[in-house]
Structure formats: structure tokens, C-alpha cells
């Protein structure tokens, strides 16, 4: 990321009353001719009176992996739900390869975008192969049969995620990591141009977390995930979007987004950021000892942790919002 060919001005926070630091001027894309696969303009979604997302902007070049980070309740899942049309935005526009997503039919949209969600229902009695074959649904007219090519696609997807020998087993009998990989195989069968995953690394041990994200990168499609582990996001995402209270606070490469100031401001924890010995992206070491603070003071004060580092006006502006 030392010499980006293309400078894309993404996120200016003036509109949100937050002063812009140097780290918010964002350089996006290290490919020369990367066209935006996904572009979101002034996206807002409100639930009744409450604004869950306000004026979110983002641009994602084709083939890149975007990690959406932010504290609980920041609007990560709502943003994803808007992206896969489960929620209809109150205002703003989402474009997929230059086409507004609202203009596509349900099936046509499902051929472009595959989604892996966190939870499966309680009574879920399906074999792994059958679950993966669900990915064929948008490619099949209502009355068509499963062909030999379809079966081949299913078994190839199972092979890609390393679950070929689990095809005949019930989904319920798989381990957590295998379940997640089976769901990704289903998404592969869907042959999407954009893959959206809601916290794909939840409940997995660290080896599976790394494995899943590296698997996603290897697929070569454009990927959007929401993720909690900042170190993992730093290591494996091409771009990050930092959300706080429904607003996009920063977008860019992990180096640009994951600064000590930024993390302190949004998550309310102190940390030290240093380059990772292997990949050179930010590695975050957290500091501990918030217990008394939590007891003694209100919610506002969680942002007063990193005394020396945060510009005063930014702190003021941030507090004014809450």
C-alpha cells in the first residue's frame, strides 16, 4: 500500500460534526483499473424514530475484501441487511457494478449476491450436500430439475471448502467450523459476484477464523464481512469500514483505519498499535483495567480514556453527539 495508484476520496466526516484527522483521508485500491463493485451513497435507515444508519458512504473495488468493524449496535448488521435488500433504506442508493440494486428482480439479485448469515433455524434437518445445493436455487427456474452439472458444482464447492467426505452427513452433525464452511460452499454454488458474510468467524477457534478468512480471500470474488476481531481484520481484509452509531467514521486500508486514536474514540479502549512482524499491518495490543471506570462513571466517559492522544475538538464534537 506504499504507492497507491489511485486516490479515492471516500469519507469526509465534516458532515457528522467530527473533525477530520489526517488518517481519515482515505486511499483506496491498489489495482490500477479496479472498477467499483459496490458503491453506497448517503445510505440511511431508520427504525421508527431512531436512525440506525445515517448517510453511510462506501466504495469497494472488484475482488477486494471489505471488513466492517465497529462496536455492538454500531449498525454493522443493518448495513449488511441493506446491502442484501432484506431492509429497504430510508434514503440513499446502493449500486452493484453501476446498477442500482433496487432495480433487480429477487432472483436476478440472488444470482449476483450471496449471503452467509450467522444463525440457522432450530429444526434444520438437511444433509450437507442438500444445504450446499440450496445455492442453486436462484439459478433454477421454479420447475426445473437438478442436472448432472448441478451435482458437479455442488461436489466441487464441497471440495473447495474441504468437506467432500461430509456430503451425506446431516448438517446438524458438523462441527462449528465445518458448518461455516458448508454455508460458504452454498454461497460458492450460488456463483455470486459479491459475497456478504455476517460475522463469519463467530464462535470459531482461532485456526478456523484464519482458515475461513483465507478461504474467502482465495475465492477471488468481492467480499463484504462484518467482523469483531480487529487484529484478524487488520491481517486479512483489504479495506476496513469503521462504523460508530450508524455513521461511517473511517474507510480505507487497515493502516489508515486502525489507529490508536480511532480505536480509542470508537471502542473506548486504550491500545497500542504497532506493525505486525509478518504482514506489517497494524497489530493492536489492548490495555486493561476499565472495571472501576465502568462503575464510577456514565457511558460518556468511556471516550475519555486516551487523554494525551485525542485532539480536543474531536473529543468535544464526539461528546456532543451522544
Amino acid at each position: 500500500m506504499s504507492a497507491p495508484n489511485q486516490q479515492v476520496q471516500t469519507e469526509s466526516l465534516q458532515a457528522h460534526g467530527v473533525s477530520e484527522g489526517a488518517n481519515l483521508d482515505v486511499a483506496v485500491g491498489d489495482g490500477a483499473c479496479a472498477r467499483p463493485a459496490l458503491s453506497v451513497r448517503e445510505l440511511s435507515w431508520r427504525c421508527g424514530e431512531r436512525a440506525i444508519l445515517s448517510e453511510v458512504k462506501l466504495d469497494l473495488p472488484e475482488g477486494k475484501m471489505l471488513g466492517i468493524i465497529g462496536p455492538n449496535g454500531a449498525g454493522k448488521s443493518s448495513l449488511l441487511r441493506c446491502l442484501y435488500r432484506f431492509l429497504t433504506p430510508s434514503s440513499g442508493e446502493i449500486q452493484l457494478f453501476g446498477q442500482p440494486i433496487a432495480s433487480l428482480s429477487a432472483r436476478a439479485f440472488a444470482r449476483e449476491v450471496a449471503v452467509v448469515l450467522q444463525d440457522t433455524p432450530q429444526h434444520f434437518d438437511m444433509t450437507t450436500a442438500q444445504l450446499v445445493a440450496l445455492g442453486l436455487t436462484p439459478h433454477k427456474a421454479a420447475f426445473s430439475m437438478t442436472t448432472k452439472a448441478d451435482r458437479l458444482a455442488v461436489s466441487q464447492a464441497l471440495e473447495t471448502v474441504g468437506l467432500k467426505d461430509r456430503a451425506g452427513q446431516t448438517y446438524a452433525s458438523l462441527s462449528g467450523g465445518e458448518k461455516q464452511r458448508a454455508l460458504i460452499a452454498r454461497a460458492i454454488v450460488q456463483q455470486p459476484k459479491l459475497l456478504i458474510l455476517d460475522e463469519p468467524t463467530n464462535h470459531l477457534d482461532i485456526r478456523y477464523q484464519i482458515q475461513i478468512l483465507e478461504l474467502l480471500k482465495a475465492l477471488g470474488v468481492t467480499v463484504v464481512i462484518s467482523i469483531h476481531d480487529l487484529n484478524l481484520a487488520s491481517a486479512l481484509c483489504d479495506q476496513l469500514l469503521l462504523l460508530d452509531q450508524g455513521k461511517a467514521v473511517a474507510q480505507g486500508s487497515p493502516k489508515q483505519v486502525l489507529s490508536e486514536v480511532q480505536i480509542a474514540r470508537v471502542f473506548g479502549v486504550c491500545c497500542q498499535v504497532s506493525p505486525h512482524p509478518q504482514h506489517g499491518n497494524p497489530q493492536i495490543n489492548y490495555f486493561y483495567g476499565y472495571h472501576n471506570h465502568l462503575q464510577n462513571s456514565g457511558k460518556n466517559d468511556r471516550h475519555s480514556e486516551p487523554q494525551g492522544e485525542q485532539p480536543l475538538e474531536a473529543k468535544e464534537a464526539n461528546h456532543g453527539e451522544r
Partner: peptide
């Protein structure tokens, strides 16, 4: 069958 995987998942598979 796709509904079995949950309403939201079925929605993402292009089903109304």
C-alpha cells in the same frame, strides 16, 4: 426447501 434454512437466508436465495 430453501425456506427450511430460515426466512432471511431464503430471501438471500432469491425467494419471495
Amino acid at each position: 426447501l430453501a425456506i427450511q434454512a430460515g426466512d432471511e437466508t431464503a430471501h438471500t436465495l432469491g425467494i419471495r
